[in-house]
């Protein structure tokens, strides 16, 4: 929890300082394009590596305010599918979120902080297949709300640009743990992505 608060404070201080720089920039030039599409690839490293393919569509409503759509498919625990005789298959997550973002411009970059909310579908199948014991299967499917904060950095001012984004879920709410080897609540579900963006309109 404390980590998230520190992160938010840093994020806001960063965006405020970048917006202060922005006042010296000529307005308008970087707001030419109204729609960007940003396919990307990413990871959610904790506690076990998940890999995601995602796409962001950002529609600029004003120079600073955007509507954002985020879609992703995440393959969970990609490198650990057979552990201690427990086999894991069909372990993936689909997400669709919509939200609003606030953008701040520097000379070469655009920082966008957004609040997203939507729905996530999770499914996975586990089989305990230890030859010494009985075989047991377990399949889980779940729909759940998803809400969080996304920070996006856009590098480059031309038609094609580089996009980096970090997402911190706010649901389920963070839970504090004193386990020194554990990750606090939602910090375990942070994801990092990079992508190639295209300004299309």
């Amino acid at each position: 929890m404390k980590n998230i608060q520190i992160f938010i404070a840093i994020l806001f201080s960063g965006t405020l300082s970048s917006s202060a720089q922005d006042s010296s920039l000529p307005a308008g030039k970087k707001a030419t394009y109204k729609i960007t599409v940003e396919p990307g690839i990413g990871i959610s490293p904790m506690p076990i590596m998940d890999m995601a393919l995602s796409n962001i569509v950002q529609v600029r409503l004003t120079r600073r305010l955007s509507a954002i759509s985020y879609t992703s498919i995440r393959e969970n625990n990609l490198f650990l599918r057979n552990f201690n005789y427990i086999k894991s298959t069909n372990n993936y997550t689909l997400t669709q979120k919509l939200g609003v973002g606030s953008s701040f411009y520097t000379k070469r970059n655009i920082h966008t902080l957004s609040l997203l909310a939507g729905i996530t579908y999770d499914t996975y199948h586990e089989t305990l297949d230890n030859p010494r014991f009985e075989r047991v299967d377990m399949k889980v499917e779940s729909w759940r709300p998803d809400m969080g904060i996304m920070y996006k950095l856009t590098l480059g001012g031309k038609k094609y640009f580089f996009s980096y984004r970090m997402y911190i879920p706010l649901f389920p709410y963070p839970v504090k743990t004193a386990d020194s080897t554990g990750i606090e609540g939602n910090m375990a579900n942070v994801s990092f992505e990079i992508g190639l963006g295209i300004r299309i309109k």
């Binding site: 076990i48 599918r81 047991v136």
Partner: peptide, 18 residues
């Protein structure tokens, strides 16, 4: 938890319950 999808929790849990 329903979303304990780390590939190790659910099947042993179910087996122990059985």
């Amino acid at each position: 938890g329903q979303l304990e999808n780390s590939g190790r929790m659910q099947a042993p849990f179910q087996a122990f319950h059985l």
